[in-house]
Computed example of a mutant assay.
Amino acid sequence: MTAAADRTALTPAETPLKKAAYDRFKQALLQGRLRPGQVVSQKELVALLDMSVGALRELLPRLEAEGLLHVMPKRGIQITSIDLPMIRDAFQMRMALEREAVLSAIRKMPDAVLEAEERRHREILDQLTALGDPPPAFFDAGQDVDSAFHDRLITDTGNDLMIQAYNVNTIRIRLIKLDRIRLTRLTLPSAFADHLAVIAALKARDAAAAILAIETHVRNARDRAIEL
């Protein structure tokens, strides 16, 4: 679970059982057991998620409202597809949220936290240089550092509405990454260079530079996803 997800309390209408059902669906998506664009029956989804029909029926309106699936009467349930409109919308939402997050970080994020983030990024870059042929686990570790940085930016705003919107949008972003923009020897250096530019601007308490850096980073990620 991400730091941002940990920060978010249950909404007034969300019971622990409803949250557990939602988390099962999310994990099925992120583990590839449900694929973007896939059409499944209600019976198949109940079996896959190991939940009751009643629990699934309570969950479906939320998932549909969040744009994670589409219920097609008498035809099944379609998992959201990764297409150009979805990619553009997801990254536009990400840019809006993270622009506000860096403005908050300018005011509130301690230098010690920024320096720790910088060290983590540089350690990964140094390891990449030292390793001739990094194993998949190395890029998984790099992705964890990448995701944790974005999670911290949002979490440290302390704004629960932003955190909830970010958590939903992050599912879409992670699906796009799994499908199109996994970190590799070629993409990791540029992604981490973008992060380091954001961190440098935050350390300098330069709001204009921080906004430019985060917008550049999100735009670069969006463009890599669209190009593939």
Rank of each mutant, 00 (worst) to 15 (best):
M1F: 12
D6G: 13
R7N: 14
A9V: 09
T15C: 11
K19Q: 11
A20N: 10
D23F: 09
F25S: 00
Q27V: 13
Q27A: 12
L29K: 00
L30F: 09
R33S: 13
L34N: 01
S41T: 10
K43P: 06
K43Q: 15
L45A: 05
A47C: 10
L48A: 09
G54N: 12
E64R: 05
H70A: 13
K74S: 14
R75V: 07
I79V: 13
S81E: 14
I87C: 02
A90F: 02
F91E: 00
Q92F: 05
M93Q: 10
R94Y: 08
R120L: 10
T129N: 13
G142Q: 02
Q143V: 09
F149T: 03
I154M: 07
I154K: 00
D156H: 11
L161D: 11
M162N: 04
N169P: 01
T170I: 05
R172H: 12
I173V: 04
K177I: 07
I181T: 04
T184G: 08
R185G: 13
L186Y: 13
T187S: 08
L188D: 00
A191W: 00
A191H: 07
R205I: 06
D206S: 06
A209T: 01
A210R: 00
I214F: 01
T216Y: 11
N220Q: 13
D223W: 09
